[in-house]
């Protein structure tokens, strides 16, 4: 795929998930990893890992995906692709002055969010089959989940501690 096709694909997928970073993962996985085979699961996870510890908008990690696929140009185009639909805000503001009732839109969005949740879980199962291939990886996964979700620790701290635990386990028992 050329950089423009990639950017256009990212734009459509980002619109479908309303610019939600995690919700975009399953769509990127199915499109670029499974269908096109031009991105590896490791690259996608790496891009998402960066996103979790990075400041700024949650979907900005598509710049990494663009970079892996087409270098700096790919990164820049991917970034433009996810920002461009923001301009729909301007006609929407004008529309809102006339129609303030958006019940239908709200109901649609609720269904979209719920579907996203199911999709993200499905995607983690399929990614996990490829990414969790050792006991060490499984332990790191559980540790990070406990720190990030249950203990609500800062993502950077969770990532650093989980990665360190992985390193230590690997050094102590390389065969795990």
């Amino acid at each position: 795929m050329n950089p423009l096709q990639v950017a256009l694909t990212i734009m459509v997928l980002n619109i479908l998930t309303f610019g939600n970073g995690p919700a975009l993962v399953p769509l990127l996985e199915e499109r670029f990893v499974t269908m096109e085979g031009i991105l590896t699961v490791d690259q996608l996870l790496y891009a998402f890992a960066i996103a979790r510890v990075m400041p700024g908008p949650a979907n900005a990690y598509v710049a990494s995906v663009g970079f892996f696929l087409n270098g700096l140009l790919g990164a820049a185009l991917a970034m433009v692709a996810i920002q461009l639909p923001a301009y729909l805000m301007l006609p929407l503001l004008r529309l809102h002055e006339r129609f303030s009732d958006v019940a239908g839109v709200k109901r649609f969005t609720r269904g979209l969010t719920a579907t996203s949740v199911g999709l993200i879980f499905a995607s983690t199962v399929s990614i996990g089959r490829n990414a969790i291939t050792s006991l060490t990886a499984a332990i790191v996964f559980v540790l990070a989940l406990v720190m990030a979700y249950l203990l609500k620790w800062n993502p950077l701290l969770s990532l650093a501690l989980a990665a360190l635990a992985g390193l230590a386990l690997h050094a102590a028992a390389p065969s795990l």
């Binding site: 890992a49 993200i120 995607s123 990614i127 990886a137 559980v142 540790l143 990030a148 990532l159």
Partner: peptide
């Protein structure tokens, strides 16, 4: 695959 990637998957979950 033993450090950052499993942690990233945990973040998605």
């Amino acid at each position: 695959p033993l450090t950052i990637l499993p942690a990233a998957l945990a973040f998605i979950v």
